[in-house]
């Protein structure tokens, strides 16, 4: 039943992505609204999926690569919904829906069985550490999407481009704060589990690399006032780093964080 639910969500996001592109290509707002509605339904079912999985596993559904990928897609969806309803910014969905679909597609190729949680993951820091990673990476993915949109569209509508650029900065600021929580809570947890709060493990090192890259972004933005196309490109390139930390490290580098 869980598998059916998961693939239904995947299909709904594929559908909404396609409809979104059709809406833009043929300039039909009504199709765009349908795409948004379908993505909302997909999001609700994704939430149900995570809740059921969490109940069956008797823990938060974030303890392996599959669960983290699905949770990340959920986190991106939540931020997207917040931006849509609270800030009335619906133009960022164009790239966000395909992002969610791609992350869920990646998750579809990973082992989906619910396994017993390893003793190292049974900690009070589990929820805070991995939960903040979900929102941190989610914010960076959205910021990168906005950066890409800026690069494509900034010459057509400078007012909208300015807003996209500023929103990208706000998302990166939020993601940076969350990433700091990830790293610091991870340090405290590592000291309790492995006796050492920092061991230059590849996952730890790449989280630090990501943190430093975004720290440089924020310094350039806040202190030097650099905005616009340079920061848009920066946010896209930095997103590549985030994706490597999320996928590349677990797949390619031996790490004590490899809970595949």
């Amino acid at each position: 039943m869980l598998n059916l639910l998961f693939f239904t969500v995947l299909a709904l996001y594929l559908c909404s992505t396609i409809l979104q592109f059709i809406s833009i290509a043929f300039k039909k707002d009504i199709i765009g609204k349908k795409a948004w509605l379908i993505s909302l339904i997909g999001y609700c079912l994704l939430t149900v999926y995570l809740i059921i999985r969490g109940i069956e596993a008797r823990r938060l559904p974030m303890s392996n690569q599959f669960e983290f990928a699905v949770s990340l897609a959920w986190g991106i969806g939540l931020i997207n919904i917040f931006l849509h309803f609270r800030l009335k910014k619906d133009w960022e969905s164009v790239l966000v829906l395909p992002m969610i679909f791609l992350i869920l597609s990646y998750a579809a190729f990973l082992p989906r069985e619910i396994n017993e949680t390893m003793p190292a993951l049974k900690s009070i820091w589990f929820g805070l550490h991995i939960g903040s990673a979900v929102f941190s990476y989610g914010a960076f993915v959205l910021a990168g999407s906005l950066g890409l949109k800026y690069i494509i569209n900034h010459k057509k509508d400078s007012d909208k481009a300015y807003k996209q650029d500023y929103l990208s900065y706000q998302l990166i600021a939020f993601g940076f704060l969350m990433l700091t929580v990830v790293i610091l809570s991870g340090c405290i947890w590592a000291e309790q589990a492995w006796s050492t709060w920092w061991s230059w493990d590849p996952k730890e090192t790449w989280a630090l690399i990501t943190w430093l890259i975004y720290a440089i972004y924020l310094h350039q933005r806040i202190n030097k006032g650099i905005q616009g196309i340079k920061m848009a490109w920066y946010s896209v390139i930095a997103l590549i780093c985030v994706l490597f930390t999320f996928i590349g490290v677990n797949t390619l580098l031996p790490s004590i964080h490899s809970y595949l």
Binding site: W200, T205, W206, I209, L212
Partner: peptide, 11 residues
């Protein structure tokens, strides 16, 4: 930036 480069190599 240099710390990023060193960390890249170290990982």
């Amino acid at each position: 930036s240099l710390i990023v480069l060193c960390s890249l190599a170290g990982s």
